[in-house]
Simulated scan of single mutants.
Amino acid sequence: MREAAPLLRISRIYAEEAALALPRGQQIVARWPDAEIVPVASHWLIPEVHGDETNVNRWVRIKTEALVLGVKKSVATRLNGRSADFIAPSTANGCAMACAYCYVPRRKGYSNPVTVFANIDEISRHLARHISRQGVKAEPNQCDPEAWVYDIGENSDCSVDALISENVRDLCELFRMSPTAKASFATKYVNRDLLDWDPLGRTRIRFSLMPHDTARVTDIRTSPIPERIAAINDFVDAGYEVHLNFSPVILTPTWIADWTALLRELDDVLSDRAKAQLACEIIFLTHNEGLHEVNLGWHPRGEELLWTPGMQEPKRSQNGATNVRYRSPLKGDAVAALRALIERELPSCRVRYAF
């Protein structure tokens, strides 16, 4: 397994007793033998790392040094229908990276380092049963023409999770042996250990991309955009299906020129094999006033791009939270403009959906 430092230098592992009793929990603890084990009653309730606004001053340090080990209590698969047919039960949540627009801190609170769930065997058994019950996909849809697609990384970045445990590999092995289904996850981190997994086309990696200058401000602790682009051909050659996740699209004063340059770069770099299987999803920025206030305490420069009230309006999310999005008809015009850019500059890339 690839050396995790400097993204991770784990010195404290907050662990539920039930997680420490499981083989996966013991394997994770053994990876950092010098780390302090801090017993906790629940992975959701750790004041030192979650839900305390004073933690904003230690935002990145917490993500680097802390790891939470828990047991996922609710093992369930949910319908999706947009990026994937189903959302698989998470094997982790939180992230060691620190993208300024990330929605996960809104749910669990503030810095939100990686929480790994040790009951991977229970999760895998559940998924195997769910896949079996679906049978063969009868009709194509925007998720995939043939396979049932399961997003396995809704609340974390699986490429980073794979630095911590074998959970992601276990799931990819499950889908590798599932001819009617495939795994899918978006990532901003290039983990080349995954190139040795031989997924046989049953795992779809969606590399998240945005213009270089915007990413330098908002995508903190991630793999640089050139590194992500350079990895696409290699992952296709290694047997992955590779799509692009243009997310979030941030409307800067130069966004049209910046996206034009990015799309031309992709057209130049991608191999014919990569282009032949290429598709993308487009997601425009959704932000949140609470996260905006937190970000001002640790990365105010990012908010200059993300918080633009003159261009934004309130949006009620599916979970009841009040967020902000670009105003209508500004957003509709921007979606149409980006679609037209892709058709002109990267015509091999099919747009799966845009919103």
Rank of each mutant, 00 (worst) to 15 (best):
R2Y: 07
A5V: 06
L7C: 00
L7S: 06
L8F: 13
Y14G: 00
E16S: 07
E17L: 12
A19C: 03
A21S: 14
L22V: 05
P23Y: 00
R24D: 10
Q27N: 10
A35P: 03
A35Q: 10
E36G: 05
P39K: 08
A41W: 07
P47F: 01
E48A: 11
H50D: 06
T54D: 13
V56R: 15
W59N: 04
R61I: 02
K63N: 12
T64C: 12
L67Y: 00
V68D: 04
K73C: 00
V75Q: 08
A76I: 15
N80E: 13
F86S: 09
I87V: 15
P89T: 04
N93D: 12
G94E: 04
C95E: 02
C99A: 07
C99Y: 08
Y103A: 13
Y103D: 09
R107L: 14
G109E: 01
S111W: 06
V116T: 07
D121C: 02
E122R: 12
R125V: 09
H126I: 05
R129G: 12
I131W: 00
R133Q: 10
R133T: 11
G135H: 08
V136K: 15
K137F: 04
A138Y: 00
E139R: 15
P140Y: 02
W148F: 10
I152S: 03
I152G: 07
N155G: 01
C158N: 12
L163N: 04
S165F: 03
S165K: 08
C172G: 06
S184T: 09
F185S: 01
A186K: 03
R192C: 05
D193G: 15
D193M: 07
D198I: 01
G201A: 02
T203L: 02
I205N: 00
P211W: 08
T214W: 05
T214C: 10
T214I: 14
V217S: 10
T218C: 15
I220M: 08
I225D: 03
I225K: 01
P226V: 10
F235T: 01
F235K: 03
V242M: 09
L244M: 13
F246T: 01
V249F: 07
I250P: 04
T252I: 03
P253H: 09
P253S: 06
T254N: 14
T254Q: 15
W259F: 11
D267L: 06
L270W: 05
L270P: 02
D272I: 12
A274N: 06
A276S: 15
A276D: 15
L278W: 12
C280H: 02
E281G: 15
E281H: 08
G290D: 12
V294H: 11
W298Q: 09
G302H: 07
E304V: 13
G310L: 02
M311G: 01
P314L: 14
S317R: 14
Q318N: 13
A321D: 11
V324H: 10
Y326F: 14
S328D: 13
K331E: 11
D333A: 15
R339F: 01
R339Y: 01
C349Q: 06
R352M: 13
Y353G: 04
F355S: 12
F355C: 11
F355T: 12
